[in-house]
């Protein structure tokens, strides 16, 4: 009996294979971190420098930080307006996508119906499609409907990529709810809508939050549609970022301050959903 117990124990000792933590591994990991963070850090550092420090041919690693660039950037009408536009468009399109996407996700997870395969194919194609393909006709259609340069047109076109992402993430969550729960609710006299509304939705709340964050990130980051469909009043933050790069004496500090204000919220959100990030970007093929 004693030998029976000890034999597997010995094996376990062997199995607990651990190479010694080595210094090379440590250094390469540090190098990777530096490579990932440095360009971003450099943008933030530049945004806190005065023009003289920025233009110095020897990069200034030590400098006295100033918030002047941020004050100037925000006081510029188009930067403040564009951040506001971005926020309105991203939030509205996210809410609409949830409203349209969650019931569809529920149906895909729970029901069998004709056209389900086509729906999936449409989602996958959407993930792969260059926005220029939709931007061309959308421009002419919107121009005739007098919708150019409005937040509405951006909200509508952003639904084309946000509804699929909501459907995909939420369908995955709905599938995890045990079917018995639905059956019990049916016996209680719930119809399928109240099962969805009162049982399904509360249980997938975390999934809804994740899909909302994704939808927000994609809308906030979008450039091509916004560039083509807006002129002045509905410009989003990335469009304003493109408009900086003309003329001679570029206000680098303000440009980088604006860049930081555009990118930082998205990075914070992404770190929150970093566990789901890979799944989200590959439409769930790899988790």
């Amino acid at each position: 009996m004693k030998s029976e117990n000890s034999t597997p124990k010995v094996n376990n000792e062997h199995l607990r294979y651990r190479p010694k933590p080595n210094i090379g591994h440590l250094l390469v990991l540090l190098l990777i971190i530096v490579f990932c963070v440095f360009p971003f850090y450099w943008m933030i550092a530049t945004s806190l420098k005065n023009q003289q420090d920025i233009l110095s041919p020897t990069p200034k690693f030590l400098f006295s930080p100033t918030l002047e660039n941020y004050q100037r950037a925000v006081s510029k009408f188009d930067v403040a307006l564009s951040l506001e536009n971005s926020l309105i468009v991203a939030v509205t399109t996210t809410l609409l996508s949830l409203l349209l996407g969650t019931p569809a996700a529920y149906a895909i997870a729970r029901f069998e119906f004709k056209g389900k395969k086509d729906l999936w194919f449409w989602f996958i194609t959407n993930r792969m499609l260059s926005p220029i393909v939709l931007a061309l006709p959308f421009f002419i259609l919107a121009r005739n409907l007098k919708l150019l340069d409005s937040q509405v047109v951006l909200i509508l076109i952003y639904l084309t990529f946000n509804v699929p992402i909501v459907i995909w993430i939420c369908a995955d969550q709905f599938r995890n709810i045990p079917k018995e729960l639905d059956e019990a609710a049916t016996l209680e006299g719930y119809n399928s809508f109240s099962i969805f509304w009162r049982i399904g939705l509360p249980l997938v709340a975390p999934g809804i939050a994740v899909s909302a964050i994704f939808s927000f990130i994609f809308s906030w980051n979008e450039l091509l549609y916004a560039l083509v469909l807006t002129r002045k009043y509905a410009q989003t933050a990335p469009v304003v970022a493109t408009s900086f790069m003309s003329g001679y004496e570029l206000p680098w500090g303000q440009i980088m301050a604006t860049g930081t204000m555009i990118a930082l919220p998205v990075i914070i959100f992404s770190i929150i959903v970093s566990r789901q990030l890979v799944g989200g970007l590959t439409m769930g093929a790899i988790k």
């Binding site: 360009p39 971003f40 943008m43 530049t46 493109t242 440009i255 990075i267 770190i271 990030l277």
Partner: peptide, 21 residues
């Protein structure tokens, strides 16, 4: 976490960083 930063940076801002670097 550091790996998330480049892929989460708004594409337009990656362009701005490129112009700077």
């Amino acid at each position: 976490i550091a790996l998330v930063i480049p892929m989460a940076t708004t594409f337009a801002v990656v362009g701005l960083i490129g112009r700077l670097l």
